[in-house]
Amino acid sequence: MRPFSYQRASDPDMAVQALSAAAAANEPLTKATAQPLAGGTTLIDLMKLDVMRPSAIVDITPLAQAWSAIAPGGDGLRLGALAKMSVVAAHAEIQRSYPVIADSLKLAASAQLRNMATLGGNVMQRTRCNYFRDVSYENCNKRNPGSGCAAMDGVNRMHAVLGTSDQCIATYPGDFAQALIALDAMVEITGKAGTRSMPFAQLHKAPGSTPDIETALQPGELISAFSISGRWPRSVYLKARDRQSYEFALSSAAIALDVQDGTIRDARVALGGVATVPWRAREAEALLKGQKFDDGLAQRVADAAFADAKGRKHNSFKIALGKRVVARALQQAVTMEI
């Protein structure tokens, strides 16, 4: 950890001002000298590990008053970015109308972390790649662009099989983002020019040739809210992991279905633990629409979801596992009582 200045932002303008002032031109957000602090459950860890070295911390927790509302309504849901994971997971209307959101939050991290961590911070959580998090490894394209990727031929059991590039195979570690991407969420961003909205699906950037650029956010921008249209009571989040709690997904699936008279009208399939970014399996969804569900269909959908997957030495199992997780999650969604 290195010395840093600390400032509390009492309103959004002040936060944006403080974050932009320190930002240098063309600097990726991950390297920005000023970083916002919300729950702190990722940022502080990475600072202790010397992975992130901001010189200015802008504490945005005072904005929680304005930015932590949970607002289900007739035509959808709005979630403030500073709402705590635990509070959203326990919200009765979220559990009723958006079980995929409640479960993705409930199955993440530990109770202590969920009490601290915010929704906005959660989607910005950085990869758990060991080679990224240990600065004694020189070669990490995410940390040191152009230095290579130690994980590619290293210990890569936890790494991604979808959305990878020859530069980076680091897994996006979160759970909640899969629910958001599945439900076509919009993300509201507050910056110097006020607020703008964009599809959540456009927030995260696959590594490609620039693994250090992880999101579409610019320095000085903050996520202020998420919004979702409609209700999705027939939705599930299934997560496979090494231990029963407090562990990242080896594979997860966020599924949301609209089934009428046995026919699937709309289907959403998102994958976690297997991809470099929150992953929407649209080609899999296409197979479901207008169909009656059976196990054969579930298998074809699962195969389609992983058609482009590329395994490496230790993580190839995630392809077969991921397919079974998708198929099982579909079965659960179809048969759930709503």
């Binding site: 530990s110 758990r128 060991n130 231990r243 029963q244 709690s245 407090y246 562990e247």
Partner: peptide
Amino acid sequence: LADYLVPVNAD
């Protein structure tokens, strides 16, 4: 201790 797993209560 995040990656060298030991059991949690739920296990």
